[in-house]
């Protein structure tokens, strides 16, 4: 197989509050011999909050990010569900509306860039599963996680709107019964845990303005995983990770029950199974200790 090569949009979180996510992404890419060209010029995607304020500006900024991936002639991979949403949504809207695309390009021309629509935007989870292949990963597993029950937490913006997901990725994902992360857990040798909250919201986006709502959602998710015998959770989204890993105290208070589980980034889980060391995967950067390795 030809070596896989992508333009990596790191997003902001991987370079600040989840350094372990950046480390594990690079470690896994190295193990799988995937080349990632980091888009160092990229700006924040707006996280669907700038979108609440200035829609056109957020389109221009996201189109600029994609334009850099296009310059490399590469598919863009994201490692954050919300980056995926906002980038893929920009692409969707510009590709469907030539008038809007022209308006955006008029602005981009001021800095010598153009959005053409030639680069796909996919999440790294699906790059691993669809492009690299689950079977190949399975064969490369050297430390199967067979003693663990792992609860997949998908995160909204990778699976909804399903239309956007299916348009961006090779394989469809059923938003009511998603399977990709479950399949990856199984490929890593672990048991995947079935629970009601696996495709639900973590509450991250209203943490400041509606802290109670946010905490209840986080608490329900951890409680659901715990009640179905999960030893840990795994998520492809660093924002979900921040909620589930760092906000357990507020979550516990909100649902009136002590909840806490180790939460892995999807990349860390794959990295562990492929034989990366805890140090390479940044496991020391978790607030809820990952103490089983």
């Amino acid at each position: 197989m030809k070596k896989l090569k992508y333009a990596l949009f790191t997003g902001c979180t991987a370079r600040q509050s989840t350094p372990e996510q950046m480390m594990s992404t690079l470690a896994v890419a190295k193990k799988l011999d995937i080349e990632l060209i980091e888009l160092t010029e990229a700006s924040c995607c707006g996280a669907s909050h700038l979108q609440d304020y200035d829609d056109f500006l957020s389109l221009v900024l996201n189109a600029r990010n994609i334009a850099y991936a296009e310059k490399h002639g590469l598919t863009m991979v994201t490692i954050c569900n919300t980056c995926q949403l906002n980038t893929a949504m920009t692409k969707h809207r510009l590709d469907k509306n030539s008038e809007l695309k022209a308006k955006v390009n008029e602005k981009l021309a001021e800095v010598g860039l153009e959005y053409k629509g030639t680069s796909n935007v996919i999440h790294f989870l699906y790059a691993i599963i669809d492009d690299f292949g689950l079977d190949k990963i399975k064969k490369m597993v050297v430390k199967p996680l067979s003693q663990f029950n792992i609860a997949p937490f998908y995160g909204c913006h990778n699976i909804r709107p399903s239309e956007l997901h299916d348009e961006s990725h090779k394989q469809k994902e059923n938003p009511y019964n998603p399977t990709s992360l479950d399949d990856l857990i199984i490929a890593c040798g672990a048991m995947s845990v079935e629970y009601e909250e696996k495709n639900k919201c973590c509450g991250f986006h209203v943490e400041l303005q509606a802290p109670h709502t946010a905490s209840v959602l986080t608490g329900n998710a951890i409680a659901g995983a715990t009640d179905n015998n999960a030893d840990m959770m795994v998520t492809p989204c660093p924002l979900c990770h921040l909620k589930l890993d760092t906000q357990t105290k507020h979550a516990s208070e909100a649902i009136g029950r002590e909840v806490s589980l180790p939460v892995l980034h999807m990349q860390q889980m794959v990295g562990l199974a492929l034989g990366c060391t805890p140090a390479e995967l940044g496991l020391k950067h978790h607030v809820t200790d990952v103490n089983f390795v």
């Binding site: 600040q16 509050s17 924040c44 707006g46 700038l50 609440d52 304020y53």
Partner: peptide, 21 residues
């Protein structure tokens, strides 16, 4: 807090390109 949260992204992007969490 909600409206400043939205506007804050603009300030941060203007200063750093990235979000200053």
């Amino acid at each position: 807090v909600a409206t400043r949260h939205a506007v804050g992204f603009l300030h941060s992007i203007r200063k750093h390109g990235m979000l200053d969490e």
